[in-house]
Design a protein around this nucleic acid. Sequence first.
DNA 1: ACCATTATTTAACTTTTGGTCAATAAGTCC
DNA 2: GGACTTATTGACCAAAAGTTAAATAATGGT
Lengths: 230, 230
Amino acid sequence: MRFTEDSVTSPNTAEISEGSMAPTRKRMGTAERKRQILDSAIQFFARNGIDGQLRNLSKELGITHTLLYHYFPTKDALIQEVYKEVFESRWKPEWEELLDDDSLTPEEKFNAFYLDYSNTVLTYDFVRILIFSGLSDHSISDRFFELLRTRLLPRLIRETRKYCGRSDTSKPTQRELEFLMGLHGGVFYIGMRRWIYGQAIYAAESPNTEQEIIRDRVQSYLHSAKSLFA
Amino acid sequence: MRFTEDSVTSPNTAEISEGSMAPTRKRMGTAERKRQILDSAIQFFARNGIDGQLRNLSKELGITHTLLYHYFPTKDALIQEVYKEVFESRWKPEWEELLDDDSLTPEEKFNAFYLDYSNTVLTYDFVRILIFSGLSDHSISDRFFELLRTRLLPRLIRETRKYCGRSDTSKPTQRELEFLMGLHGGVFYIGMRRWIYGQAIYAAESPNTEQEIIRDRVQSYLHSAKSLFA
DNA sequence: ACCATTATTTAACTTTTGGTCAATAAGTCC
DNA sequence: GGACTTATTGACCAAAAGTTAAATAATGGT
């Protein structure tokens, strides 16, 4: 993939400019530097794809590309850590709690969940890295979908049934799941348009509207579920 | 992006195997060979991303990579033709005719359209190349969305309104469009799951079900549109 | 002030890969 | 069958990009 990775003026070497002072070499603690690299790497690979060149990443960090090898044995190892960071540490356990909260109606749960989900997951970093990884190797993005499939979907189906006045706890049917995936995919598609295709979504202008969009769709989903599955 | 591009036994050199015959160098007409290369290139780049190496593509074709340069001045030129082929020559003008057909109800149109649309567009080649291109440079995928935006969406909104018993021809509101994009994105997400994340979609097993899935969603969309916009 | 540690850089190696060019040979036309 | 065209190849180049190893210099401890 051909991306233009703009050269960025190195923060570290910025101080060399004046006078004939020897370039002050900064020295960071292992943990902090590793953290810093990882953070930058997420942004960098989200932007440039996992084909982004280490030399460019290091330029953004103001270090030499060889220093990366002091913290990560190989480029692939770095990328694996990026995946891990993005897919695992951004998962919110609160989502499950929210969906299990007895004081909320199914409709409230759906609205609250998808609003927060879209704010957390429909990020530049997340969407792009998820897709980059899926494009190159399912086994990575699978980890995320596994969480979705086991933790969230069953709860969402349960709430859907509750909304329809049903209380059976039988295994979700494919038809139920597919109908739910219609809603889910529609929401994810917002992120796609925004971060992959670079389209301006209306919601970007006024934050209110994002909420409106999701409310419309959730209401539509639940309402139709009632006539389909009740 | 790191893909494993499996070496494929060259079809051309296959005949060398037996005896000590000199390898028969095949000679193809310009047009056919170019066509052949383009067809393979579509598959190849869909699989490996546009970073796929020309040497591997040519290996699949059973030719040397330098021969590619006899037909395409540069790798980028080849890729541009791949884009053109995928995005432009797969667009069906029938879609517009279908949506303009007066003998069909809005619901019939939606069903027929999205069923055919998903069969044409939700292909391995198409979905992956669309996303690869979007990831690296919007300007390419934009061409496709432009068709969508100008040719299809207005007609779909018109039919939605017709279904709702409205006949005004005013410009679609953002809310109407976003609601439609919910359906549209949900459909596209089927292709995403199938061709990006490698998930088995139920519909893959029985062709009937794909129809059922889309019918469910279309009906849900139209039904809800009525209560939202009527 | 010195030493040990290790973060950081410099230089270099290797493989990959897009691209060029002259040589070769498969058809075709007379 | 010889000449001409051009499809096809093989050898080669240069830049890109991952990786390694040795040299350098902050930093902290004593």
